[in-house]
Design a protein around this nucleic acid. Structure first.
Lengths: 117, 117
DNA sequence: CGTTGACCTGGAGTGCGCTCCAGGTGAAAG
DNA sequence: CTTTCACCTGGAGCGCACTCCAGGTCAACG
């Protein structure tokens, strides 16, 4: 069991963000101690790692919510999860391709600037 | 000289975005015809291409404004422009590296899901 | 036991980057 | 000439993803 502060440390999400994610249903109702304070399970932290990965690759919250529902839906949703991740993977691939192309333009611009110095 | 509609077509920015960019000073006061309608020069369109590139690689508007000021500052600002673009290039590189790493995680997740089917 | 500090809730506020709207003027096609 | 359409302005509104705040409750350390 992890305290909120530990999870903040571990995942890099702010405490407010963790609460927000719980509020919108991205995290399932987190366990509480007697005083009502959150205690995150190993599994919660793992799921937050997945969220971190998908958010950092630009997946919108709305799609994460769909993914979360699939995960809650049990093993029979695994084909759908694969489809969702593959779709996202294509997005990521496109982002990388786009960045690489644009970077080329930037490099050419820098070269040009160097050439006129 | 390009009409607003032509520039929209050419650059992919919406008309509202073009007006917004002019308002905040990212585009210098665009020329007008007798009726007060914008007529964009070749140079404006070229500059919009640069903006497209930098925006699409995640440069915030605030940094674009700094870059725009340098461009207006004339040739003596070229070393500063190079520095700014190099800094941005590092950001882009970091984004690509990050995406590539995260993509790996996604691939492993997909493989895992496939393995339990 | 007291004090400090982590944590709680509901709800308002923020920053970014547009996007939309109302109400109007001039351009351009038939 | 008329009608339609592109364009104009200033300003309000929006969507996303948080982030902050007030006002409070418990925990944990010395």
């Amino acid at each position: 069991m992890y305290t909120p502060a530990e999870v903040v440390e571990e995942t890099g999400f702010s405490l407010d963000t963790l609460r927000y994610y719980e509020k919108i249903g991205l995290l399932e109702r987190i366990e509480r101690n007697a005083a009502g304070q959150r205690r995150f399970s190993e599994e919660d932290v793992g799921w937050l790692g997945m969220i971190r990965c998908l958010r950092d690759t630009g997946m919108p919250i709305a799609m994460l919510l769909r993914f979360a529902e699939l995960v809650r839906g049990g093993d029979r949703t695994i084909p759908d999860r694969i489809r969702l991740l593959e779709e996202h993977d294509r997005q990521v691939q496109a982002q990388i391709a786009n960045l690489t192309e644009r970077q080329d333009y930037i490099h050419r611009k820098i070269s040009y600037y160097r050439s006129v110095l």
